[in-house]
Amino acid sequence: MQIGLSEYLIVGAVLFVAGVVCMATKRNGIGVLMGVELVLNGANVNFVAFARYTPLGLDGQIISLFVIVLAAAEAAVALAIALNFYNNHMTIDVDRGDQLKG
């Protein structure tokens, strides 16, 4: 089997789906964050793979760089939010934060 774009995309899809499921199942706020990281990472794999196999070239890599940087920033903010959440609820269980329910 020739290793081509499709294979990389499948790896990216696995990462993405794992991230989504992680977000959907974890009650721990940190776990949810990890899911987010996985989703972003799956997207990154796609970008870089497209950069390699299509005329996208360096642009794909640069976009993935932006994604990494923004993910880091997001992680920092999300962690701060998680800490605040923890301060307010004395737990990190996201199921407890349902004040905004309709």
Partner: peptide, 18 residues
């Protein structure tokens, strides 16, 4: 009627998105 959907449950929202 759609109010009920807004459970406030983060994980449910993600499920909905998926």
């Amino acid at each position: 009627s759609l109010r009920a959907v807004q459970t406030g449950q983060l994980r449910q929202y993600i499920m909905f998105i998926a």
